[in-house]
Nucleic acid binder design. Structure first.
Length: 280
DNA sequence: AAAGGTTTCAACCGCGTTCAG
DNA sequence: CCTGAACGCGGTTGAAACCTT
């Protein structure tokens, strides 16, 4: 039992669905000449068989002359992610900071592109924190969980996901299961000889990329604390432990957002070599 | 070439807020 | 202050476009 529909929401006998070019022309002509005024009265005055709400939406999302068309620029993408991390799903507020972009457009772009990119890179799109969820990536479900060792294995892979999101990417000296269980990562020359410990305890609250510690040789580098997925991904109840600081996590974050295809193929190679029996 | 599946995005729906009477 | 109408926003839907097999 909800609120009974208001006058504007009843829309008896009014047209719905996609707008025709003729309707667009009528709406545009009317607003050009008279301004929109009351949206409620506009359709009748403009000769449109639509509700005021539909006219307002069509104007603000499509017909408005200052609307910017085309792909989002890397700067715009960066702005959206930054604002979303602090504002959440406040699409209208985010849109107000991106001239020419509508809240609907940003919302759609987020849901169809950015959200998926963040997930693929191990970042929870709602909290903007790193994920530890055992279901991430989803194919982890296919790993044979015959022992706690295997479970620990998966946790380690989760850590490695985070590591791979750092820049520059380290390369593996072992890609076998044994190498994963007893990992020594071969790092770029700039940070060579830094050994990554397999320590699941959240030691540092802020992720410090290897570059920060490159003056330390043969030192244990502790991976950051991890965060579980949000409820849409997991119903687990593990406390959050670290905020994902994009500027530290990936100095070339812009590039990371725009194109992560190389990253994913890199992963396929690693996982198929490490778990040849699993159906990845 | 075609069928089925997936993705995209314009448009709708419903709720909370604002405002005029 | 109260009420109801209009507005604005975020979530959701579904048709069309695109992709895969």
């Amino acid at each position: 039992m909800g609120r009974p529909p208001l006058k504007d929401e009843r829309n008896e006998g009014l047209k719905k669905g996609p707008w025709t070019p003729e309707e667009d022309e009528k709406l545009k002509d009317y607003i050009d000449k008279h301004g929109h005024g009351s949206w409620q009265l506009l359709p009748r005055r403009a000769g449109l068989n639509r509700c005021g709400k539909s006219c307002r939406l069509r104007w603000s999302n499509y017909l408005r002359p200052d609307i910017k068309r085309g792909n989002f620029s890397p700067q715009e993408i960066q702005t959206i992610v930054d604002l979303h991390s602090s504002l959440g799903n406040k699409w209208a507020m985010i849109a107000s900071r991106l001239p020419g972009r509508t809240d609907n457009e940003i919302k759609n772009y987020w849901n169809t592109h950015l959200r998926k990119k963040l997930l693929r890179n191990g970042i929870d799109p709602q909290t903007h924190q790193l994920l530890t969820d055992l279901n991430f990536p989803p194919n982890f479900n296919n790993f044979p969980l015959s022992s706690l060792e295997n479970l620990a294995n998966i946790r380690l892979l989760g850590n490695i996901i985070q590591l791979l999101n750092s820049n520059p990417l380290p390369s593996f000296s072992h890609t076998t299961l044994d190498g994963i269980l007893n990992p020594t990562l071969q790092l770029p020359s700039s940070i060579a000889n830094v050994t990554f410990s397999v320590d699941y305890k959240p030691v540092c609250n802020t992720f410090q990329p290897p570059e920060v510690q490159q003056h330390v040789t043969n030192a244990e580098y502790c991976l950051p604390g991890l965060t579980p997925a949000t409820s849409e991904i997991s119903s687990g109840n593990v406390g959050h432990s670290s905020i994902c600081d994009y500027s530290l996590l990936n100095q070339n974050y812009e590039e990371f957002l725009v194109d992560d295809e190389n990253n994913s193929s890199f992963w396929k190679d690693i996982l198929s070599e490490s778990f040849p029996s699993s159906s990845l």
